[in-house]
């Protein structure tokens, strides 16, 4: 699922978009998403796809990787597009464009913002328990993915996987997943003990709540720069949204 590549882009990037506040980027993504859902015009939809691509180019993210990821929802939406084609080909095309645009919006957000910062923004609207579950899921995902990839490699090297033999594969995969589940449960026990020792009481404290999501670094200069970026980003997305809502007749 290319999670590691996206995570690397979000954490190692140093563009002005990476430095913008996570809350602002979440709002910008949502505004662009709303604009995409509201529009029924093909030209506006194409322009709305160009917006996240432009932002991704500015953020110097790996566009090849991003477009590869954005292709998945296009494939999944193909069936809905084919159904809509029976109404009109434009309706079918709109489904594909919306899928691509929405995926690019979300990918812009996660390619420029580390997951922990996004979860911190979510913590303003979601209960702490859910945020903790997000954090534990994310943490365990990387460990288990690593374990899984080495297991799959091992199975393939021993001749335990053949693309045409579904039942044969399934038996071996079931055993592999069983081992992975045991490993995952042991890991959850370990996590419980580690966090208990560190004073975990059912809620992971989000360090610097104001400092991370809505404010930034200690330096005033950086703060002013970020503030300017945030205002410009918000203004830009608002203009895009209003531009979509207004029926232009030129």
């Amino acid at each position: 699922m290319h999670i590691a590549a996206i995570d690397y882009m979000a954490n190692s990037g140093n563009s002005f978009l990476h430095r913008a506040r996570p809350a602002v980027k979440v709002i910008v993504s949502l505004l662009l998403l709303i604009a995409l859902i509201l529009t029924n015009d093909i030209y506006k939809a194409v322009l709305l796809i160009a917006v996240p691509v432009f932002l991704l180019l500015l953020s110097k993210s790996n566009l090849k990787e991003i477009l590869h990821l954005a292709a998945y929802p296009m494939v999944f939406s193909l069936i809905f597009a084919l159904i809509r084609v029976q109404e009109s080909w434009l309706a079918g095309l709109m489904v594909l464009l919306r899928a691509l645009g929405a995926a690019l919006n979300m990918l812009f957000l996660i390619a420029t913002t580390p997951y922990t910062d996004i979860f911190r923004v979510f913590s303003y609207v979601l209960p702490g328990v859910i945020i903790d579950i997000f954090l534990f899921s994310y943490r365990s995902l990387f460990i288990l993915l690593d374990k899984l990839s080495s297991m799959i490699r091992s199975i393939k090297l021993r001749g335990g996987f053949h693309p045409a033999k579904i039942l044969f594969n399934l038996k071996n995969i079931a055993g592999m997943l069983g081992v992975l589940i045991i490993h995952a449960f042991d890991m959850s026990e370990r996590l419980y003990r580690i966090y208990s020792l560190r004073g975990y009481s059912g809620k992971i404290p989000m360090t610097g709540s104001a400092a991370g999501a809505f404010g930034v670094s200690a330096k005033q200069n950086a703060l002013l720069n970020t503030l300017l970026i945030d205002i410009l980003l918000l203004l830009f997305s608002l203009i895009v949204l209003i531009g979509v809502l207004i029926p232009w007749k030129i």
């Binding site: 699922m1 579950i133 899921s137 995902l141 899984l148 693309p163 996590l191 419980y192």
Partner: peptide, 22 residues
């Protein structure tokens, strides 16, 4: 909470397991 997080991680991982041509 850690158990639920790990279960969610497992669900995400199950989705990435290849099933051949299907």
């Amino acid at each position: 909470i850690p158990l639920t997080g790990v279960a969610a991680g497992l669900m995400l991982i199950f989705m990435s397991v290849p099933l051949g041509f299907l």
